[in-house]
Every structure is written in C-alpha cells, then in structure tokens.
Simulated scan of single mutants.
Amino acid sequence: MKLVIAIVHDDDVQPLLEDLTSKEFRVTKLATTGGFLRAGNTTLLIGVDDERLDQVIEIVKNNCESREQITTSPAPVTGTAGVFVPYPIEVKVGGATIFVVDIEKYIKL
C-alpha cells in the first residue's frame, strides 16, 4: 500500500476530487499555503493499493495543468532599510507535486 501526497493549485482541486472519488479512491483534503507566492493550494492524501498507484498519478496529471501567471514579486522576508517596490514577474502555477510513500500498516476503524 502507498500514500500519495499530492499538492495541487486551488483552481485544479475540485475537478480532481470529483475524478478521484468517481473512481472510488478515498481522499483527505487539506488546505495549505505555498511558500514562494504565499498563495493557497490544496494537499491531498490518497491511500492506494500498489496496483492502482499509476492510475492515481494519471488522474492527477490529467486534472492539474501548469500555466503562466503574472504576479508581483513577493516582499523580502528580512527587513530592508529602503523602500520595497514590487515588480511584475511571470511564474508558472498549477500542475502538481506528488510524493509517494510506502505504508507499513493501514488501519481503518
């Protein structure tokens, strides 16, 4: 058994959840925040049998497309002596980051 941890853009999560649940995968949804853009994203925890792992990954790929977005540069973490002027930058958003972890034991009560 595997645990799939998928971090996806908030805009992609609803169709992804519908696709996963329609194929009878059990999913836990966590609201999370990205570090660079400090934007909302969603982390999904999906327990899956080894033989269905590729199917889950394919579903995530089909529902989470990356795209370009214009945003302002994030403010620096450390304080500055001068004035910070944000400037527009083009960044890639969407897509998914997927981690697959072996599960030693699975207990459902």
Rank of each mutant, 00 (worst) to 15 (best):
M1Q: 09
K2I: 03
K2W: 03
L3F: 04
V4Y: 10
I5T: 10
I5F: 15
A6M: 10
V8N: 05
H9G: 12
D10K: 15
D10P: 06
D10Q: 15
D11R: 14
D11Y: 08
D12L: 07
Q14K: 15
Q14D: 13
P15M: 06
P15I: 00
L17S: 03
L17C: 09
D19Q: 14
D19F: 13
D19K: 15
L20G: 07
S22K: 15
S22I: 09
F25R: 12
T28Y: 13
T28S: 14
T28C: 12
L30M: 14
L30G: 07
L30Q: 13
T32N: 10
T33C: 06
G34M: 05
G34T: 01
L37P: 01
R38Q: 01
A39L: 06
A39N: 08
A39K: 10
G40Q: 07
N41S: 04
N41T: 01
N41P: 00
T42L: 12
T43K: 13
L45H: 00
L45R: 05
I46M: 06
G47V: 03
D49E: 12
D50I: 02
D50G: 06
E51S: 10
E51V: 07
R52L: 06
R52H: 11
L53W: 03
L53F: 04
L53T: 00
V56Q: 02
V56W: 03
I57V: 10
I57L: 12
I57Q: 10
E58W: 05
E58A: 11
I59T: 00
I59C: 01
V60R: 08
V60S: 04
N63W: 01
E65A: 08
S66D: 06
S66N: 11
S66P: 02
E68Y: 03
Q69K: 12
I70H: 04
I70D: 09
I70N: 06
I70Y: 03
T71Y: 02
T71Q: 09
T71N: 02
T71L: 08
T71A: 08
S73N: 02
P74C: 03
P74S: 00
P74Y: 04
P76S: 07
G79I: 04
T80V: 11
T80M: 14
A81E: 09
A81K: 11
G82R: 13
V85Q: 15
P86G: 09
I89G: 10
E90I: 05
K92F: 05
G94F: 05
G94P: 00
G95C: 04
G95S: 06
G95Q: 08
A96D: 00
V100R: 11
V101D: 06
D102R: 04
I103L: 14
I103H: 02
Y106L: 13
Y106M: 09
Y106H: 10
